[in-house]
Amino acid sequence: GGHPVTTQMVETVQNLAPNLHPEQIRYSLENTGSVEETVERYLRGDEFSFPP
């Protein structure tokens, strides 16, 4: 991942996926670069990993 992630982006995802840890959200956003894509992954039931 190398996309810039803002606190705003993390908070937006958190509102839609409250049971995800912020670190999981941030890591996913760094890989996708997209709030929409991260939320899609969540709704699909994809696994969210923590940063290594």
Rank of each mutant, 00 (worst) to 15 (best):
G1I: 13
G1W: 13
G1S: 13
G2E: 11
G2L: 14
G2T: 13
P4D: 12
P4I: 15
P4N: 14
V5I: 12
V5A: 04
V5M: 04
T6V: 05
T6N: 08
T7F: 11
Q8A: 10
Q8E: 15
Q8D: 12
M9I: 02
M9S: 03
M9K: 04
V10L: 11
V10F: 09
E11T: 11
E11D: 11
E11F: 09
E11V: 10
E11P: 00
T12R: 15
T12E: 14
T12M: 15
V13Y: 00
V13S: 01
V13E: 02
V13A: 05
V13K: 00
Q14A: 12
Q14V: 09
Q14M: 14
Q14P: 01
Q14R: 12
L16Y: 12
L16A: 10
L16V: 11
L16N: 05
A17Q: 03
A17W: 05
P18A: 07
P18D: 04
N19R: 09
N19V: 07
N19I: 07
N19W: 09
N19E: 13
L20T: 01
L20F: 03
L20A: 02
L20M: 07
L20V: 02
L20R: 02
H21G: 06
H21I: 04
H21D: 11
P22D: 06
P22F: 10
E23A: 14
E23I: 06
E23M: 10
Q24M: 04
Q24Y: 01
Q24G: 01
Q24P: 02
I25F: 00
R26N: 02
R26M: 10
R26P: 02
Y27K: 04
Y27E: 07
Y27P: 02
Y27A: 06
Y27R: 02
S28H: 07
S28K: 01
S28G: 03
S28A: 10
S28F: 06
L29K: 00
L29S: 01
L29V: 01
E30H: 08
E30I: 09
E30C: 09
E30W: 11
E30V: 08
N31A: 14
N31T: 14
N31D: 11
N31M: 15
N31C: 12
N31Q: 15
T32G: 06
T32S: 08
T32P: 01
T32Y: 06
G33I: 02
G33E: 04
G33T: 04
S34H: 03
S34D: 07
V35L: 08
V35F: 03
V35S: 02
V35W: 08
V35K: 00
E36Y: 10
E37P: 00
E37S: 08
T38Y: 00
T38K: 00
V39Q: 03
E40H: 13
E40P: 00
E40C: 13
E40R: 15
E40Q: 14
E40Y: 12
R41S: 12
R41K: 13
Y42N: 00
Y42R: 00
Y42T: 02
Y42A: 06
L43W: 10
L43H: 10
R44T: 07
R44I: 05
G45K: 03
G45C: 05
G45H: 04
D46Q: 09
D46T: 06
D46K: 05
E47N: 12
F48I: 04
F48Q: 01
F48P: 02
F48E: 02
F48R: 00
S49W: 10
S49F: 14
S49T: 13
S49E: 15
F50G: 02
F50L: 05
F50Y: 11
F50Q: 03
F50H: 05
F50N: 03
P51I: 05
P51V: 04
P51D: 06
P51Y: 09
P52K: 06
P52V: 09
P52H: 09
